[in-house]
């Protein structure tokens, strides 16, 4: 009987010890994590590139959804007329960062933003900034192609019309140039009046690009523009990006590392809301300085 009682108390003790062990383990882990975060932050800053001609300057940008930070302390400059890729695992804040650049995050409830984003030297979070004007300067192409349920022509003319262009010859010219710019003109020039929804997925996405460049933005944001497309359509869009970066500054968020390697000049690697490493694309993929970057680009996690 006594033996049994003893055994029971031993069992109770073991349980207690277990709990204590777990707790301490958690503490240690947390500590380690904190240290890691710290090192990440330091490393992020140490890897800051010197960009000679930045068009977008992001300084200490932190964004919180209802008090939960989504991106933390971002500090990068984005060079003019180059393609800059942002890579990183899902949920690391790539898209959020992108949406900070045209203030599309404003629409979401409970968002607070700190830090500054300058485009062409102008702080876009300044209270005097006209958001609609800003969005004309910073075009965006979304992950899912979203042509309006209007004709192909009207889709492209939508932005210019908002800017007050009414003359039909001007509009025709803009539409043709933009569709040419998006390498779509030859495919749709005979059916501009047809619904945009009659186009294939890849064509729809290129139409969205045409629509975005019709207002001649300074910066073109692309949020995983090829994630819904097949390889052929993806190839076309990638060629287009290479083409477009002659005239536009492109910031592209992508999951596809080959794509980033193919189209971008600079690449930023984000993890858990922070920029871990930012460098010339070649360096990121061939000579990453950070262990996490190396793990990610070599496919060890993500």
């Amino acid at each position: 009987m006594e033996v049994i009682l003893n055994l029971a108390s031993v069992q109770g003790n073991i349980l207690k010890y277990n709990q204590i062990l777990k707790k301490s383990d958690q503490l240690i882990k947390q500590n380690l994590e904190d240290k890691k975060q710290d090192s990440i932050r330091k490393e992020g800053r140490s890897h800051q590139l010197e960009i000679s001609d930045p068009i977008v300057e992001i300084e200490n940008l932190t964004l919180e959804y209802d008090g939960k930070p989504a991106i933390i302390d971002i500090l990068i400059d984005i060079p003019k007329n180059h393609a800059t890729a942002v890579i990183g695992p899902s949920g690391c804040g790539k898209s959020t960062l992108l949406r900070c650049l045209n203030r599309l995050n404003d629409l979401i409830d409970g968002v607070t933003i700190e830090g500054s984003v300058k485009i062409s030297g102008e702080d876009i979070y300044d209270s005097n900034i006209d958001v609609t004007e800003l969005r004309k300067r910073v075009g965006m192409v979304f992950q899912k192609s979203n042509p309006f349920p209007k004709s192909i022509y009207e889709n492209v003319a939508y932005g210019p019309r908002l800017s007050g262009i009414k003359n039909s010859t001007d509009l025709d010219e803009i539409v043709e140039n933009s569709l040419n710019g998006a390498a779509l003109w030859e495919e749709v020039k005979d059916r501009l009046g047809e619904s945009a929804l009659s186009l294939s997925g890849g064509q729809q996405q290129r139409l969205c690009i045409a629509r975005a460049i019709a207002v001649e933005p300074e910066v073109l944001l692309m949020d995983e523009p090829c994630s819904d497309l097949d390889p052929i359509a993806t190839g076309k869009i990638e060629d287009l990006i290479t083409e477009l970066k002659q005239n536009y500054t492109i910031v592209i968020v992508t999951h596809n590392m080959q794509q980033a390697a193919r189209v971008s000049d600079y690449t930023a690697f984000m993890y858990l809301g922070r920029i871990i490493e930012y460098d010339i694309t070649e360096n990121i993929f061939l000579r990453p300085t950070n262990k996490q970057t190396e793990d990610y680009v070599s496919g060890k996690f993500g």
Partner: peptide, 27 residues
């Protein structure tokens, strides 16, 4: 009306009223 349509319109520099009339209402 899908949010990505309104977002698309807003991203082109339309204000909410323009988005409502030109994109949301027809859709």
């Amino acid at each position: 009306v899908p949010k990505h349509l309104t977002a698309g319109s807003l991203a082109l520099g339309a204000n909410r009223w323009q988005t409502a009339i030109k994109v949301v209402l027809p859709t």
